[in-house]
Design a protein around this nucleic acid. Sequence first.
DNA 1: ATTAGGGGTAGTA
DNA 2: TACTACCCCTAAT
Length: 417
Amino acid sequence: MPRLTPADASLILDHVVGDASIPTAAANVLLAGLPFPDRPTPRLLRSLLLRRLDTDPVSAAALDSLQLLASLPDSGPASPVYAAHLAVAAFLACSAPDFDAAARALFGRPGGRARRAVDKEEGGDPALASSEALAAADQFEAAVGNAFSQDVLKGLFGDRAKAERRVRDHLAAEWAAIGPSRLELAAEQIVGDGAVETWRAADETVRAKYRILAGEEKAREILSRIEDRISTPQVHKVIHDLKSRCADLHNVVDDPLPAAKAAADKVLAARMDKAVHINDEELNNQAANCSVAGPSAVNDQGETLRKGTPSSLMDWNPTAQSLLWEDSLDPDGSRSQSHRPHLPSPRRILVSPLQVAENKARRRRARRWSSVEEETLRNGVEQFGSGNWKDILSHNPDVFIGRTQVDLKDKWRNMMR
DNA sequence: ATTAGGGGTAGTA
DNA sequence: TACTACCCCTAAT
């Protein structure tokens, strides 16, 4: 038996690994036995990532897989991937030994990994995330430094089994949208709807092969369909003219896409450099500040902290810095050619733990009040009376995540205007 | 400590 | 520019 060519191996992997009904154990055997293609198809990459996620749905590695998954071209609706991304990030924050650090790294602004996927200001696309997911991201950000809110969030997102179920539910849509393999497409060409064109284009030797592949009966059926087709010389002339006109048009009109892409790349490169410079500056400033001031609370919940002294000299490390994970699947760097929106690439983005530990307590980011919060506030005022903000807050901890008594008071003032 | 209320800042439509 | 959310201050309880 002749050795398998790399091209054939690629076809087989593309077909088998992408078939959801094939167990991952079996797919792995095949992967170990066949050479991995130099240029794997997006379908193969997608199915590999989905299988990886299936065995390990809620981990830092899963976050990487989801990020890669979102960057692949030609897939179905992207929002399930983003929803899964947020679900994993939520679980990771809840199960991390240091909630504050994890929530900041994942949901904080700027630079939070899950945050950057969906926030417009962070280069993401909010249309890709559900409003619940966005609200969850805001709640995690608001819960930094707030032990009470953290407990609530841990109750909602900290269960591993639930998190795994969430991720698998979201990714079922990705499996469903995975599309036919190249082998299936080829088969379709020979015996399916594309058969007539395929047979017409083939010479007699090739047709003999098709007969073997398709079976004699199917071959006869296709040939009869060729004869049935309207194929008068006039029709052929019209089709030919149309095709050449299209070609002429393409020759005359400049394709705007390359220019647009070049412009976009330029803007992106400028933004990247800016981001790096800003981070450098912040590092310098903060290094200067560090000698005269300790850490302070970020959040309103930490009012007493801010006025007091740092609880520990080890609260944060002023010299620490880290770079986000860098990875790339595409061998020729063609990721930017993707027509789909994608999670922003993590490379070159410096994440400084000092960003949230500035000398001056940073103003909390304004979060719009949800209709649920407003309704709960109205009910609370009805139940406890206007002015009893402490009671209203403490009786609805799962609704007023990251809100303070003063926030409730201010909001009620706004609502009464 | 909690609350009310005046007034200011920042972000956004 | 108006609106909203948040912040800060002072005074009263």
